[in-house]
Design a protein around this nucleic acid. Structure first.
Length: 574
RNA sequence: CGGGACGUGGCGCAGCCUGGUCAGCGCGCCUGCCUUGGGCGCAGGAGGUCCCCGGUUCAAAUCCGGGCGUCCCGACCA
């Protein structure tokens, strides 16, 4: 591969519109270009990386017994109406009409299509189980695409669906996929964490997400330092407080105190000379089942997913200022659990407090010396807050650390949701008609490209894991005007290619400095420099991108040396 | 969808407040010379509906109104 003939438009300056490192570097390295918000062109080098990820995913999926298919990107509305998602999905679903006026959408996911295929072709338990996957462009009309490839509207995804005669069989498949996913991300050379995830309204006993660890990740996860427990923050259980609740505080009951213009937890704490942990905050939420109040200790954060799951609601929104006034009688900042005509859900930590400060539902007033178990009528006490680094691990009691990650994979059991909606059934051994049990497994292929950069970069540019690099070796001649150098470098290029090594020869009429900069920016793992001086010594200089380490290698041993580096690097990752 | 910002040669920006003298700078690109171990130097050159529409004005990149696009924060996310 010759640099001079490739479309690799590298840039010296950062693009104004990019903020995330991966976005900036993909852009500067000439790997992607934006066509519209959240929609990108992949240029040759970017596409090569994407293909590398695809290839690893394919190999491991196939190895795990899955079969590749390719489903249509454009789907008819009828299927979505059958599952009811045509109505539910919202504006994220890109809808349009064909020339006949039929409603269509660009597929954001393919449960409908795959289930339709299977219901038509599978009728007997003898045909099951079946594990089908595809690697395909999806389109989700995100309200806010961001961070380049991390959250685009159009993105490449591997989505797989499995079909089973029963839940036990689905679970076995889930375990296979779990193992396959771990192999995939390992082979991609990523530092990642497998975490328990919220399975959402679809239910199912478990769900896992695969998170690439990066400071810039959009997701938070809790990970135990002592055992292997790790969970998405949305999911991580909080251990109930050890102190027994119900001890009445010494002295009298709730007392109203004037707290003019004191609204936030911090303000209340400061004003009453208390700590946030001695305050109960009352959040008023709107749901499709009506408004509710949620009680939390002042220093804790609500976990809305837990609240949603407890209430079994889809919509959960903090009430606006007007509604709060209407429902509590006080302005925002003075809501409390007394005299509310609402169901009250208390987090277990709030419920266990012995003496607390709450709002008085009257602007300018709070109540002190509140004992929740004695004074507050609580509809239900539950785990409703987000875990913190101060909480113990719910499994072993060890210390928890909170990490950031980028979700690159998600597996979960779908159960019968789609097979019931679409009537996908089979006849079992007894001739009984049964619904097919399903599983679902996704990988954000294009997102992995970006995630790898978020995790692998330095001041000079991208630092690819060898398995994902667009090419393995960058070959840089110091001067092409020197005939000996020119000859050496071209024959070396051919030799390496023949040996199956991916090499990019920088044959441009540029100064060495320019080539070094671009080589670093592109993140090519191994750089071979040939110049009159090294040539005279019968050697080549090999530089490792990640470590910056430079070694002189005799020309005769170069191929072997490079092969050794590549093999070592790839094998180490499984 | 709420909040904030931006839109000027391919890219990054200045100019706008205080209308004219303003279309400019750096990078990139083209030609030539020179140079060749970390984005070199010199000389010459090409390239712009100043996002769009409308208004104010003798005069608009600049002021006003509307629209479109893009980015950032938030909400949202099988």
């Amino acid at each position: 591969m010759f640099f001079s003939r490739m479309l690799i438009p590298t840039l010296k300056e950062n693009p104004a519109e990019a903020e995330a490192v991966s976005h900036i570097l993909l852009f500067r390295a000439g790997m992607i270009r934006k066509l519209a918000s959240g929609i990108y062109n992949y240029l040759p080098m970017g596409l090569r990386v994407l293909r590398k990820v695809e290839r690893i995913v394919r190999e491991e999926m196939n190895r795990a017994g899955a079969q590749e298919v390719l489903l249509p990107a454009v789907q008819p509305a009828e299927l979505w109406q059958e599952t009811g998602r045509w109505q539910i999905y919202g504006k994220e679903l890109l809808r349009f009409k064909d020339r006949h006026g039929r409603d269509c959408c660009f597929g954001p996911t393919h449960e409908e299509v795959i289930t339709d295929l299977v219901r038509k072709e599978v009728h007997s338990y003898r045909q099951l189980p079946l594990n089908l996957y595809q690697i395909q462009m999806k389109f989700r009309d995100e309200m806010r695409p961001r961070f380049g490839l991390i959250r685009g509207r159009e993105f490449l995804m591997k989505d797989g669906y499995s079909f089973h005669v029963n839940e036990a069989d689905a679970e076995a498949c889930y375990q296979d996929m779990y193992a396959a996913y771990n192999r995939i991300f390992q082979r991609c050379g990523l530092r990642f964490k497998t975490v328990e995830a919220d399975s959402g309204p679809i239910g199912g006993s478990f769900s896992h997400e695969f998170m690439v660890l990066a400071e810039t990740g959009e997701d938070l996860l809790a990970s135990c330092l002592a055992c292997d427990y790790a969970a998405n923050l949305e999911k991580a259980e909080v251990v109930p407080p050890a102190t027994a609740s119900g001890d009445a505080p010494a002295g009298s009951g709730p007392e109203e105190v004037a707290t003019p213009d004191v609204r936030t937890v911090e303000e209340v704490a400061g004003f009453l000379n208390a700590t946030p942990a001695e305050i109960i905050k009352t959040l008023i939420y709107e749901t499709e089942k009506g408004p509710v109040a949620v009680l939390l200790r002042g220093d804790h954060e609500v976990n809305e997913v837990k609240v949603k799951n407890l209430l079994a609601v889809m919509d959960l929104t903090l009430a606006g200022a007007g509604r709060v006034q209407e429902l509590t009688g006080g302005e925002v900042g003075f809501a409390g659990p007394f005299g509310l005509n609402l169901p009250i859900y208390a987090d277990q930590a709030a419920a266990a407090m012995t003496t607390a400060v709450t709002g008085a539902n009257k602007t300018g007033y709070h109540l002190v010396r509140v004992n929740p178990s004695r004074d507050i009528v609580m509809t239900q006490v539950a785990d409703l807050r987000a875990i913190t680094a101060q909480d113990p691990c719910p499994r072993c009691g060890g210390n928890i650390e909170i990490l950031r990650g980028i979700e690159v994979g998600h597996i979960f059991k779908l159960g019968l949701k789609y097979s019931k909606a679409l009537k996908a059934t089979f006849l079992d051994e007894a001739g009984q008609e049964q619904f097919i049990y399903m599983g679902c497994y996704g990988i954000g292929v294009s997102r992995i490209v970006a995630a790898a950069i978020e995790q692998g970069h330095d001041g000079q540019g991208i630092v690819w894991p060898l398995a994902l690099a667009p090419v393995q070796v960058g070959l840089v001649p110091i001067s092409l005007n020197d005939q000996a150098t020119k000859d050496a470098v071209f024959s070396l290029h051919d030799g390496l290619e023949k040996a199956g090594i991916e090499v990019l020869l920088d044959d441009r009429d540029e100064r060495p400095g320019v080539k070094f900069k671009d080589c670093d920016l592109l993140g090519i793992p191994l750089r071979v420099v040939i110049g009159p001086k090294t040539l005279a010594a019968g050697q080549a200089e090999v530089r490792h991108r990640r470590s910056g380490e430079t070694v002189m290698v005799p020309l005769g041993e170069l191929l072997q040396y490079l092969q050794g580096c590549i093999r070592h690097e790839l094998n180490e990752k499984g």
